[in-house]
Design a protein around this nucleic acid. Structure first.
Lengths: 208, 208
DNA sequence: ACCTGAACACCGTTCAAGT
DNA sequence: ACCTGAACACCGTTCAAGT
């Protein structure tokens, strides 16, 4: 079981091939969004992108690489939004800061809820198969940095781990809401914020 | 995309075939545990169970049915343990009750942590493909029943949804802990309990 | 330099033939 | 009634041939 690479096989340097790569990634998004995982195969992606499978494999070494490219694109959008939110939140008390992060994450995930949910799922599969290929590392770093400001009111010692846990909690609650169809953003934001705040400041038996 | 059935194709009535089915399910568990999803294929399962693929398909209509059978078995164990815990927790205040449930869930998941994590993952895939086939329905019902006792101190209106959310939170935190290798049970129990308690009783902007 | 699509490999599933 | 394993279908991936 040797490590499979999922980096793009080669970067498109000419404008035309750049458009090809872009078309392939967006075709992946649309197929995952409308057909789900069961409709997601390389021939369908190539078809929808208007190229042959051979071309697809010229840029992506395997099927997972399509997901990684798409996830990276979406994670970058989330990362930028969260970075912005974190900067604005820096002057708020912890609860307000968490609420703002929750608000931002929810807003982004609900922009394309079905896509977001499938990607959350696929990212977990990739992590399951190769833990060190985590796509949320940057985001976790930013969250940890924000948390450090509030160390005085936080009961948890390991803020790196806490950042990952908060992301896992938010993801779980957002995906559950999408599954149930209960996506009223304010209510969802409240649930995420309360869980996060409880995790960080709850008096229930501390220890890490 | 018609609904694929995952129920066992036929119940083994004779002792011999009962042992065959049992062997197939346990072979599934051991392969998932040791090789992960990438080593999980029907021929490998049949081999390890000491039967031919044909025999496997006599009892299980498809590959997913193997996972469903195994998950059902494991969920039943968790369900029994949680039912017992809920009965004992009935006299405790909310925090103690949540802690006891967390303790029980953690204990069961850590009995075979790698298997539990892969099964959590596979269950989410099955839910993603067929939402109404949820394996956690019974467990959620029991949790909701317990929550009703504490309605006075709980800020959340929809206790059914809350039960599913709490399960999702616990699952996310336990799986994240296994991934990081931070499985110190008391600390993990504290994290799950604090998040759950915050979710249910936190003062952060209520609304559902 | 980039594209094509038929060919190959792997694995889920079936089925004709055995006992 | 239960088992076997070769055959088939599907899909990920490659590669010889085209421009």
């Amino acid at each position: 079981m040797t490590r499979a690479r999922t980096r793009p096989r080669k970067s498109p340097s000419q404008p035309r091939s750049e458009r090809t790569v872009e078309a392939i990634v967006e075709a992946t998004a649309r197929i995952l969004e409308t057909q789900g995982l069961s409709g997601f195969n390389t021939n369908a992606v190539a078809d929808k992108a208007g190229v042959s499978v051979g071309s697809l494999y010229q840029y992506f070494p395997n099927k997972d690489a399509l997901v990684v490219a798409l996830s990276t694109r979406e994670r970058a959008l989330l990362g930028v939004a969260l970075g912005e939110a974190a900067r604005q939140a820096a002057s708020l008390p912890l609860e307000g800061a968490l609420r703002r992060l929750a608000h931002t994450a929810i807003h982004r995930q609900l922009a394309r809820p079905d896509l977001a949910r499938v990607l959350d799922f696929e990212e977990q599969r990739l992590v399951l198969e190769e833990p060190d290929r985590a796509l949320t590392r940057d985001i976790a770093g930013n969250v940890a940095t924000l948390l450090r400001r509030y160390r005085a009111v936080i009961q948890v010692a390991d803020l790196e781990a806490a950042a990952y846990d908060l992301i896992a909690i938010a993801r779980a609650l957002i995906d559950a809401a999408v599954l149930r169809g209960q996506v009223e953003p304010v209510a969802l934001e409240g649930r995420v914020t309360r869980a996060a705040l409880g995790y960080l400041t709850g008096r229930a038996n501390v220890a890490s």
